[in-house]
């Protein structure tokens, strides 16, 4: 998995490429946390994410909680159908901002 972090002035954009599973989720978590250290608003681009495991969901949950504590926001974009299913199934679509 690869994550490219781009500073887009008002927010940070994280382009995630690859499966987010047990092995790679710490990387996503780290990327999300360091993005929040720079900006209040973070957009996570899931265009190239074919699958997310429960560990990956945890990283997103931590990101959401961080956004809430900082008064910022975390948005998910370009979420694929499979990932959207997972988010729906786990109820994460209820707490995350998804575009």
């Amino acid at each position: 998995m690869n994550i490219i972090a781009t500073d887009c002035e008002s927010y940070m954009r994280l382009i995630v490429d690859g499966r987010v599973d047990t092995n790679t989720s710490p990387q996503l978590q780290q990327a999300v946390l360091s993005a929040f250290q720079k900006k209040k608003d973070v957009v996570v681009d899931f265009l190239n994410v074919p699958y997310i495991s429960s560990a990956g969901l945890r990283a997103l949950l931590i990101g959401q909680k961080t956004a809430a504590s900082k008064g910022g926001s975390m948005k998910l974009t370009n979420v694929s159908e499979i990932v959207m299913n997972i988010l729906d199934m786990s109820g994460f679509s209820k707490i995350l901002q998804i575009e």
Partner: peptide, 9 residues
């Protein structure tokens, strides 16, 4: 419809 996970929030 699914509810949110337990222990998350």
């Amino acid at each position: 419809s699914h509810d949110f996970v337990v222990g998350g929030m």
